[in-house]
Amino acid sequence: MKFLKNLFIVIVVLAVVLVVVGFFLPKTSHVERSIVIEASQDTVFQEVNSFENYNNWSPWFKLDPDAEYTFSGPDSGVGATMAWDSEKAQVGVGSQEIVESTYPNFVKAKLLFGEDPNPGYISYTIEELGPRQSKLTWAFDADFGNNIVGRYFGMFMDGMLGPKYEEGLQALKEDIES
């Protein structure tokens, strides 16, 4: 009986420590990757300002090509929306909607997953390096607020998303340059 009592105390103390530490973790998470593409700033902007060709280079589409996709709103720019529904956990259910589009160098989209009402935001920043060369930076930002589990999750965001962003950027580069 004494063992169970001590085990219970250890579990309670551990839970309290995890919660307290969680409040000291960063509320936000930022991930970004960049690539240089041999194409004009306009060409790169047109590609990321629409979901029309998104699945040609999306690393998540490769995880489940059978996912159902629906598109709504305008073909490009603010209001363009793509939603998906996949039975595979790595893809899940969600949507993205372009919420900001500043020609020729910036696109921002709101990203929702499943039932989570807290959005993440992705952004594409296009920097012209020359007449036919552009640097594209793909970023993800999340604000976890007081969500302790989210803050712990945020510590691993770069390791989870970074390689996928690198894969997607490489595929986009190949798609645009071909």
Rank of each mutant, 00 (worst) to 15 (best):
Q96A: 07
S86K: 04
E87N: 14
A142Y: 14
F156Q: 07
K164T: 14
P131G: 06
M1Y: 15
A80E: 03
A67W: 10
L129G: 10
E87V: 14
F8A: 12
G130L: 06
N53T: 13
V13F: 10
V44C: 05
D141H: 09
F3D: 03
E167G: 08
A15C: 02
Q41A: 15
I98P: 06
S40L: 05
D75F: 00
V44D: 04
V78A: 12
F24Y: 07
I98V: 15
S34N: 06
Y165R: 05
K135R: 15
Y103V: 05
V31L: 15
F24R: 10
G150P: 15
G77R: 05
D75N: 01
N56A: 02
I11Y: 09
A89C: 08
S134D: 02
F3Y: 04
V99Y: 04
P117R: 11
V12K: 01
T43I: 03
G114M: 09
S123A: 06
S72K: 03
L161I: 15
D143Y: 13
V36A: 06
Y165S: 07
N53Y: 11
F144I: 00
A83D: 03
T137I: 00
P131K: 12
P74D: 12
S101L: 11
G162S: 02
G22D: 14
E127G: 12
E52P: 01
K173R: 01
V31F: 13
Y152C: 02
S95I: 07
F3W: 01
L18H: 05
P59C: 10
F24H: 07
P74G: 13
E127P: 10
W57H: 13
D66C: 13
V78Q: 11
G94I: 08
F153P: 09
F113H: 04
E38D: 11
S58L: 15
F113L: 10
V91S: 00
N118A: 13
S58H: 11
V36T: 15
Y152I: 09
F106V: 05
P26G: 07
F45K: 00
R132C: 10
F113A: 08
K173F: 01
